[in-house]
Computed example of a mutant assay.
Amino acid sequence: MMGQTLKRIAPQLVTLTLVVALVTVIFPNFLAVSFDGTRFVGPAVDVLKRSAPVALLGVGMTLVIATRGIDLSVGTIMAISGAVAAWAITSGMGLPASVALAIGAGLMAGLWNGCLVAIVGIQPIVATLILMTSGRGIAQLITEGRILTFSDANLAFIGSGSLLGVPFPTVLWIATAVIVALLMRRTALGMLIEATGINRAASALAGVNATVLLIAVYMASGFCASLAGIVATADIRGADANNAGLWLELDAILAVVIGGNSLLGGRFSIAGTMIGALIIQTINTGIMLSGFPSEYNLVIKAVLVLVILVLQSPNLAADWLFVKSLVKARRAKVRSETP
Rank of each mutant, 00 (worst) to 15 (best):
I103Y: 09
G104C: 08
G106D: 08
G106V: 08
L107V: 04
A109T: 05
A109W: 01
L111I: 02
W112N: 04
G114P: 10
G114A: 05
I119L: 13
G121H: 15
G121F: 05
Q123F: 07
Q123W: 12
P124A: 02
I125Q: 11
A127Q: 03
L129K: 10
L129S: 08
I130L: 11
I130D: 05
L131H: 00
L131Q: 01
M132D: 02
T133V: 15
S134V: 07
G135R: 02
G135Q: 05
G135H: 02
R136E: 01
G137P: 00
A139E: 01
Q140K: 15
Q140W: 03
L141H: 02
L141G: 08
G145A: 01
R146G: 09
I147K: 00
L148G: 00
L148D: 02
T149S: 12
F150G: 00
S151W: 00
N154C: 02
N154S: 10
L155K: 00
A156Q: 05
A156F: 10
F157W: 10
F157K: 03
F157M: 03
I158Y: 01
G159N: 06
S160A: 11
S160F: 05
G161T: 03
S162N: 05
L164A: 10
G165M: 10
P167I: 04
F168W: 05
P169G: 15
P169N: 13
T170L: 14
T170G: 09
V171D: 14
V171A: 14
W173T: 13
I174T: 06
I174S: 14
I174E: 07
I174K: 07
A175Y: 06
T176K: 15
T176F: 04
A177S: 13
A177T: 05
V178I: 08
I179S: 09
V180M: 11
A181M: 11
L182W: 14
L182P: 07
R185A: 12
R185K: 12
T187K: 10
A188D: 15
A188F: 14
A188R: 13
A188C: 07
L189Y: 15
G190P: 15
G190M: 06
M191H: 14
L192T: 11
I193N: 12
A195H: 03
A195G: 01
A195Y: 01
T196C: 13
N199C: 01
R200E: 13
R200S: 05
A202F: 06
S203P: 00
A204N: 10
A204R: 13
A204F: 09
L205Q: 08
A206G: 03
A206R: 07
G207E: 05
V208F: 08
V208D: 04
N209E: 12
A210V: 15
A210Q: 12
A210F: 05
A210G: 07
A210T: 15
T211P: 00
L213K: 07
L214E: 14
